[in-house]
Computed example of a mutant assay.
Amino acid sequence: MHTVWKGAISFGLVHVPVKMFSATEDKDISMRYIHKTCITPLSYIRKCQTCDKEVDWEEISKGYEYEPGRFVLFEKEELEQVNGEANKEIKILDFVHLTDIDPIYFQKTYYLAPGETGAGAYNLLLESMRQTGMIGIAKISIRSKSSLAAIRVIENCIAMETIFYPDEIRSITQVPNLPEKVNVQERELDMAKMLIEQLSTTFDPEKYKDEYRGRLLEAIEHKVAGEEVQTAPEPHRANVIDLMAALQASLDATKKEKDEPAARKPRAKTKKEKPQETVS
């Protein structure tokens, strides 16, 4: 894996040299914009509307628009000075329980490996967090962006989850049409809870597949082979308006799905049964 960051975790006066690796990868199928007339890929051009010409990277700086059409400019060196030396340190501020953090705060996961001289301190932090069941809340800067982070243990690896700052989370009050008071019918609630119980299971990530990506890859293969793209069948949806009827239909459907695998299992042969002879 490619190293995306090098630095150290610090908690108290202990420093743990680490290397950072991205724990996830984007599996999206990349598409390019094509000029349909001549089948040529289109290029991204950095063009100045005032000078009416393409601009080289050497002529580009970053700017903040503080009023419409008015900017303050920052060079790379100025932004680095603002960022300071903290971008080489993951500073643990507190230790908390993982259940204290709402999932809305989580952004991206990274794996942290021990640096060349940090195996002992790395193992100490890993095992102490595992035995206490606590995770660290830290600050880190990656590519000039300051983030909060959760430091936790995954198997025998220290992992880091970047998390949003509180002011980056939009207030629920901005969501339209939320009920002021939740009112439900008792019978409907009981049936909904029964449906949840029937659909409840242990989480197995391997059972979930990206069906869209699979169909897109299949469509690409058909296109390459000069064949027509097959249209995905529309999922069956009953036109049920009554909520009780919809709940009952859902319960019946889930019960049928659970019963069918058992019904399809081959019946075990008894000692009296003989295998059928094949006629050649």
Rank of each mutant, 00 (worst) to 15 (best):
L126E: 00
D242G: 03
S147W: 06
L251R: 02
D28A: 13
D94N: 14
K108S: 11
A149L: 02
K256C: 06
T231Y: 08
L93P: 02
L178W: 00
E127K: 15
M160W: 01
L216W: 01
I101W: 00
C51A: 09
P41H: 01
P176M: 02
T3L: 09
T50C: 02
D259T: 11
K258W: 12
K272S: 06
P205Y: 06
S144W: 05
K271L: 05
I140V: 15
K76R: 11
P114M: 01
T278H: 11
G7V: 01
I90W: 00
K19M: 09
K53G: 06
E67V: 12
Y105R: 02
L243Q: 07
V72M: 10
L189P: 02
L73F: 13
A121V: 05
K139V: 11
E155D: 15
G63K: 04
S128N: 07
I45R: 07
N183M: 13
Y33F: 10
G120H: 09
D28M: 12
E218N: 09
T37E: 08
K193R: 14
K53D: 02
P41C: 07
Q185D: 14
G136K: 01
E277T: 15
F21I: 09
V72C: 09
L125G: 00
T40A: 04
I142V: 12
I101D: 03
Y64I: 10
T37V: 13
E257G: 11
Y105I: 04
L112R: 00
E197M: 08
